[in-house]
Design a protein around this nucleic acid. Structure first.
Lengths: 125, 125
DNA sequence: TCGGATATGGAAAAAATTGTCCGTATCCGA
DNA sequence: TCGGATACGGACAATTTTTTCCATATCCGA
């Protein structure tokens, strides 16, 4: 893994949450796992635009953060299933509320982004 | 500014929210502005560990996303004040709920992170 | 033996974000 | 004129995140 040069400090709750779900695909992974898509390959097929590597890395991070549990079945070919821990499940309402806000304001946001970004104000008349 | 090579798509509400508050200091800036710290220099003094440059950039992004309003006073030396738009204010409850979750689970998270990350499972009989 | 399924890792490139350093401009006071 | 306050921008470096590419291992079936 990549080793950070600047240590992280979690001085507020927000930074803790962002450390946990900040990765590009993490919230989507949690959503899919909650929907029953549990195996790495299935998750990769469900998110084809993400690289296999990052999905693995982010799943492992979620595991190391106590959000997911990883269960290995001693079969061949190997079988692995991820599931949400109770800690992970406590996260779902927060993610849902984030998602709801975004859904609700999506149209407004897209409109704003489409516009010319800045209309200059008169400056020091 | 840096020009993105891969265009972003906002396929879910979550990604919209993350586009808006994903920057390293954005939520903190919103918090401080809501608390009445409105001027760029004051915000920089309030977040000494962030560089002046990034704070400016993120304030401008928040403005271009319709979250903040920037008001220029035609004085010298120049005076600028940021304030939350109604759109920005609608964001506060979401950020607060994110922060609450983090506060609530901070201790548990720190414990998990302190531990050795992985205890290997037996693998294939 | 070869290619498919499974799961995963290392190394390095690419992309994105954040930080550093220097420069602009204006007025005030020493 | 010089340094301070204000606010801001460009160019580039440093850091972090994500992607790409190549590799391992095992069993099954052709």
């Amino acid at each position: 893994m990549y080793e950070k040069k600047i240590p992280k400090s979690f001085d507020c709750g927000f930074s803790v949450l962002m450390e946990i779900i900040g990765g590009k695909w993490k919230s989507y992974l949690l959503y899919l796992i909650d929907q029953g898509v549990r195996r790495p390959t299935a998750l990769q097929r469900a998110i084809p635009s993400a690289s296999r590597r990052v999905l693995d890395l982010q799943l492992r991070e979620l595991e190391s953060h106590g959000i997911l549990q990883r269960k290995i079945y001693p079969e061949l070919p190997p079988k692995v299933e991820y599931s949400l821990t109770p800690f992970g499940e406590s996260l779902l309402p927060v993610i849902a509320s984030m998602d709801r806000w975004g859904e609700k304001h999506l149209a407004q946001f897209e409109q704003l982004v489409k516009q010319k970004p800045v209309e200059p104000q008169p400056h020091g008349g």
